[in-house]
């Protein structure tokens, strides 16, 4: 279970910022004053640290860090 979560947290930033780009490459809807593509990139500036933090906590709980 934890292993699956770990893999998801690792894959997610790559998928969101590279793989799905063709689908988010659009102007509408404009959110928080940002056209959609820019909003999406902005969103992942904020979300990526959460993924990293999740991985950090998982590794810590497994005693993988020293």
């Amino acid at each position: 279970m934890k292993k699956i979560l770990l893999v998801i947290l690792i894959v997610l930033p790559f998928a969101a910022q590279l793989v799905v780009l063709p689908f988010v490459n659009r102007i509408d809807p404009i959110i928080l004053g940002l056209p959609f593509l820019q909003f999406w990139l902005f969103l992942w500036i904020v979300l990526t640290p959460f993924c990293t933090f999740g991985i950090y906590q998982l590794q810590k709980s497994q005693g993988g860090l020293d």
Binding site: P13, Q17, W44, T48, T52
Partner: peptide, 8 residues
């Protein structure tokens, strides 16, 4: 994405 992923 370049620099966000670089740190990741």
């Amino acid at each position: 994405p370049y620099s966000v992923l670089a740190y990741f």
